[in-house]
Amino acid sequence: MGYARLGYARQVATIFTKDLRAELRTKEAINASLSFALVMLLLFSFAFDPSEETTREISGGLLWIVFAFAGTLLLNRSFARELGNDCLDALIAAPIPGSALFLGKALANFVLVMAVELIALPLFGIFYNVKWTSQFPQLMMVIVLGTWAMTVTGTIFSALTVNIRLREVMLPILNFPILIPALLGAMQLTSSLVAGKPITADNDAWLKMLIGFDVMYTAVSLVLVETVLVG
């Protein structure tokens, strides 16, 4: 019986690949999430008829509300997917650290949520007639940081709520209050960047907070996940 030395990165990559492959075979969650994001963008565009200036001011809030709700549909499936056929038992029994399981799942969720956001973003520009690309690199950085914040807290709460009957309701109820500081930062920065204003000393506190949130909640989740899964 020869055990190869399975590095931590390979364990993470194995879970990441498995989750992406399983989701892309069925496309259940990503189709639901994408449709939801598009319907929300469309409905908001019908509900309000703002000027271009007003749209730029509310763009951060509008986009991140859409991203957060659409993302929740994907995050809900993260650990719930393991309940069918009791696959979660087999993953917990496998000789990999809980943190590798968590990280693999969080990265797969991140890729899926980012894919939905990157499709929704140009459509936002078209529906609302806004040129949003003038600060593209900085806007991408904020979207990456905000999405990781959403993903990391969403994945740990997905693990926490996996055995609860009303998990679809419980995940946003638990996740959104925790996420408020990160969402607030991402909204403020996104509004500025869509309006063409770069991140400067005036608003870089939001960026620092977003980075701090990501680092802190990633570390806390990696430490707590074993307790969350096994008790």
Binding site: R5, K18, A90, A94, P95
Partner: peptide, 22 residues
């Protein structure tokens, strides 16, 4: 439960667990 994934093939399932067990 059978603890294998419906969305994966038999070979993919066993290879996945083989990797997890190193």
């Amino acid at each position: 439960g059978i603890s294998v994934y419906d969305e994966l093939s038999a070979l993919e399932n066993l290879t996945l667990y083989g990797r997890l067990y190193g």
